[in-house]
């Protein structure tokens, strides 16, 4: 049974309950269609479990098959550095079919961030080390594709539709 090797910390992007009974960590890729589907399931989990659930996202871009996954992750980190990670995250998944470099820069602008600074950050690969760190933590924890979920530190090996994820969260929700 694979376990999360790098504990959730302040360096992570988290939303939902600040100190939820259950912590859901997703390793995902912005260009992966399965992650897009999972994104809406996770939003639904957040609405259902409220403060009991802390939702964390870590990057696992499969760059060999998804050339835009890395720049998208870097754009999300650029937004994150200005407190807007989740806005960018949601925007990318909402418009995954239109994912492109101009889209990412445009999304930064829509969020009120500097398009130019975003372009410079992507060019300089400013946030690449953070993404590589996420990726490696995922590899060492047994991430085996995207998306991979960890629920309270244990890899969720079942399907990742709402029903299965909710059942898995519920099963550990009231465990001491």
């Amino acid at each position: 049974m694979s376990e999360l090797r790098v504990p959730v910390s302040a360096a992570d992007h988290a939303r939902g309950g600040a100190d939820g009974r259950v912590v859901l960590v997703e390793y995902g890729d912005y260009e992966c269609p399965y992650c897009r589907v999972a994104h809406s399931e996770v939003l639904q989990l957040g609405r259902h479990f409220g403060d009991d659930l802390t939702i964390v996202f870590r990057h696992f871009p499969l760059t060999e098959i998804h050339p835009l996954a890395e720049p998208a992750a870097e754009a999300a980190e650029f937004a994150g550095a200005q407190g807007r990670f989740w806005d960018m995250h949601d925007a990318i998944y909402a418009h995954q079919d239109r994912l492109s470099l101009p889209f990412l820069l445009g999304a930064a602008r829509v969020l009120g961030l500097s398009e130019r600074d975003c372009a410079l950050a992507l060019e300089a690969k400013t946030y690449a080390p953070k993404i590589a760190q996420d990726f490696l933590s995922g590899v060492r924890s047994g991430v085996n594709g995207t998306p991979t979920f960890f629920i309270n530190g244990r890899r969720h090996d079942g399907p990742f539709d709402y029903r299965h994820l909710a059942a898995a969260v519920e099963s550990v929700r009231f465990r001491a």
Binding site: D29, L62, V143, G145, T146, P147
Partner: peptide
């Protein structure tokens, strides 16, 4: 039928 399958992950982990 998944994009992040076992071989795709190993491919990405090759540097390690």
């Amino acid at each position: 039928p998944v994009c992040g399958d076992q071989m795709a992950v190993y491919n990405q982990v090759l540097p390690e």
